[in-house]
């Protein structure tokens, strides 16, 4: 039985081993909460790979179902180019409809991947959907001259106008997503625009498919497409209405605001009523979407990593001071209401168990590592850990308070690397490179797991340096900052 001290109440918290490998935590209020424990096995669960493959296969099958369905209806062929164009149109529509499911933050389907991976896939697969959606009319115009009259949008029949509306909305959606920053679109404004345009693209596309009639004449096929349309609409309603309603029943309250030396802010939250909901079972290294507002329908949700132990009742987020959202976080006061949607992400010790851990972070990139280290400390874990921290100045290190609390509770070596140190600084200087890592890491370095969290360029540089030391690629796990 592990006994830990609760930071906020300074009362002991009892952490007991649980048969499932999770931990049963008895809170000072008398409630019990099951927390996922850090597994000590050397291999990740084999089931995760199979579940990933199954979800990917399901995505593929649902995307191909409309084409398969249309085979049930015998009809005369219209030549390869026209048929290929139609196939592209069907695939574009179903893949675009499925984008709602990928972005809906469903816990079960996201868990084997991590929502960050699912959102990256959402972005990457959109390029196929756009190519297919634009390829569909282009091939038609190439195949048959008579289709070119449809270019006259004003006098074209309704079915073609629906198609134009869908394609134009899709074009606008792509432009505003790829060049959001260049267009100076704020994240919340982009988010609303993205949702509205997505619904327009799919509904107009469905309207077009129904009005064309050539492929959807069969009642069974029409019924299947109507079901498809209903699912898309349900997904939109679920994400925008049902999910916020469910989250509104689990409000959180700000209990501490702690300005970090580097300019970041640590926000400590607890359930607004201890009887309303019991804690937040997350794995150290994961993140959650946060909404600093009393209104759960406000679309201003943003993802941030937890920085506290996953075994505590209170949850901390450490947030860097950039952008308009963090300005709204700055306006938070103790006692304010916030909502939390999560946890999400697969950048965790459970997903990559090992004999010891090396963490490499820059600035606020320390956040997931603070959570991992605090959790390991609460579990009494004595596996060796190394933390390499890059910062500009030695007096601007995010997380120093939390690191000080961990002293003596872990087998941890912290290496501060300062790029612009003062004259008094006697520690490491410059950047984290192969030579620096080589000086501090043990000879049995190939058996450790490596986690990197920093800006994109530094993540690449550190990954390269680690590979230069002979660390296998499957032992290097990285995350970089970057808004969609």
């Amino acid at each position: 039985v592990t006994v830990a001290l609760d930071d906020t109440t300074a009362r002991p918290v009892f952490v007991e081993p649980h048969p499932s490998g999770h931990r049963l935590e008895r809170l000072s209020s008398g409630h019990r909460v099951v927390r996922p424990g850090v597994t000590t096995s050397r291999r990740a669960a084999p089931a995760a790979g199979a579940r990933r493959a199954a979800w990917l296969l399901l995505h593929l099958l649902v995307a191909l179902a409309p084409l398969g369905l249309s085979l049930a209806q015998p009809r005369p062929g219209r030549g390869f180019l026209v048929e290929f164009s139609v196939a592209l149109g069907f695939v574009a529509l179903s893949v675009l409809g499925l984008q709602f499911a990928l972005a809906a933050r469903f816990t079960r389907s996201n868990a084997p991947f991590g929502i960050d991976v699912v959102l990256t896939y959402h972005r990457q697969i959109s390029f196929l959907a756009v190519t297919a959606a634009f390829g569909h009319p282009l091939l038609l115009f190439v195949a048959r001259d008579r289709y070119r009259v449809l270019l006259d949008v004003v006098h074209a029949p309704l079915r073609a106008q629906c198609a134009w509306l869908s394609v134009a909305a899709l074009g606008l959606l792509m432009v505003t997503s790829i060049w959001r920053k260049a267009l100076r679109l704020s994240y919340p404004a982009w988010h609303v625009l993205h949702s509205v345009l997505g619904v327009v693209v799919v509904l107009a596309g469905l309207g077009h498919a129904f009005l064309v009639d050539h492929y959807l004449g069969e009642p069974l096929v029409r019924l299947a497409w109507a079901l498809y349309g209903a699912v898309f609409v349900w997904l939109a309603v679920w994400v925008r209405l049902i999910k916020p309603l469910r989250l509104s029943r689990r409000p959180w309250r700000v209990v501490e605001l702690w300005p970090e030396p580097g300019g970041s802010l640590t926000v400590g939250i607890e359930p607004a009523s201890r009887h309303a909901h019991l804690g937040f079972p997350f794995k150290a290294g994961q993140f959650a979407w946060i909404l600093p507002s009393r209104n759960p329908f406000n679309p201003n949700w943003h993802p941030f990593s937890m920085s506290s132990s996953s075994l505590r009742f209170r949850v901390d987020f450490t947030i860097k001071n950039v952008g308009e959202f963090t300005r709204s976080v700055r306006r938070l006061r103790v006692g304010d209401r916030v909502y939390v949607d999560g946890p999400h992400g697969s950048f965790t010790l459970e997903d990559h168990p090992g004999m010891g851990y090396v963490f490499v972070g820059a600035g606020v990139g320390i956040t997931p590592f603070l959570s991992m280290l605090a959790t390991l400390a609460d579990q009494g874990d004595r596996r060796p850990c190394w933390l390499f921290l890059a910062n500009r100045h030695e007096d601007q290190v995010t997380g120093v308070r939390q690191l000080a609390r961990l002293q003596g509770r872990l087998n941890l070596r912290v290496v501060h690397v300062i790029s612009r140190p003062s004259d008094q600084w006697s520690g490491e200087r410059g950047r984290i490179d192969t030579g620096l890592l080589d000086r501090h890491l043990p000879l049995e370095r190939r058996s450790l797991q490596y986690f990197t969290c920093a800006g994109g360029e530094m993540v690449q540089a550190v990954d390269g340096a680690l590979r230069g030391l002979g660390i296998p690629a499957d032992r290097i796990h990285s995350e970089h900052f970057g808004m969609v």
């Binding site: 191909l64 084409l67 196929l128 950048f347």
Partner: peptide, 30 residues
């Protein structure tokens, strides 16, 4: 905010399978 993972292989694979199916479908339909 973090986005990680090696997802491009999955996206390429899905895209390739979808396009291949489109090709076969249109060959069968023509």
């Amino acid at each position: 905010v973090r986005f990680s993972g090696r997802t491009s292989a999955a996206a390429w694979l899905t895209s390739a399978v979808l396009l291949l199916f489109c090709l076969l479908w249109s060959l069968a339909q023509r």
